[in-house]
Design a binder for these strands. Structure first.
Lengths: 109, 109
DNA sequence: TTAATATATGAACAACTTTTCACATGTTAA
DNA sequence: TTAACATGTGAAAAGTTGTTCATATATTAA
């Protein structure tokens, strides 16, 4: 049977690197803003351009563009340019799972 | 074939309530801080008391206690009192899944 | 009871974030 | 080319957050 100290030591040894912790927390942090949560929700339904997201959320193009950059910086969304439009969609199914898992927690009784 | 406008309208209609969006974003937000990310990691390995978490992270008891409250307020952790100690652990497997899913995204090539 | 221990909490300050505003960049149409 | 359009970006204001410090509460031991 392990001592309490041995347990602590084991956890300390298995702790992720600062780099991984930072990227992980920034990823959650980026999901953790109502505007971006709504953007993620919208994009879980369809690929959308800035003007459409702007209309959906009732916010300025500029505000949306700033937020899309935050999402893109952490690889949560991908961008596809078509003429002067920029279409955004979720980067992969991981993001959708992450979002769904969070939703399940929130909707729990 | 649906028009662009019809797509937008459908998404607007299926958008979650402000209440759900807010709790969801607050949940992600709470995970989105390096200190709390490390706390979640530690508790994914074992139930731990404030003093142990404090030692593990090299932070004051007060700082840990404040953060545990944030985690508890959003039902991410549960507390069990034993004498004067308070043992914390993840609230359910949802939280562990959420954390694992985030980690997968971050560790992706 | 008093002292010691473990955790919790309010206030305050520094650090960070989000939106707005003004303007820049890049693309299409005339 | 010029005008119109779609998006991107830097700076700044207003708001939010995390830690520290001092102190409070609660439990145990003497």
């Amino acid at each position: 049977m392990k001592t309490r100290n041995a347990i602590i030591r084991d956890i300390a040894n298995s702790m992720r690197s600062q780099e991984v912790i930072d990227k992980l927390s920034r990823t959650f942090s980026v999901l953790g803003d109502p505007t971006r949560t709504r953007l993620i929700f919208a994009m879980s339904k369809a690929e959308l351009c800035v003007a459409e997201l702007s209309e959906l959320l009732g916010m300025s193009h500029s505000a949306i563009s700033h937020q899309m950059r935050a999402l893109k910086d952490l690889d949560l969304v991908r961008c596809r340019k078509e003429g002067r439009k920029a279409f955004y969609r979720l980067n992969d199914e991981h993001i959708e799972n992450l979002f769904e898992e969070g939703l399940k927690h929130v909707l729990e009784p």
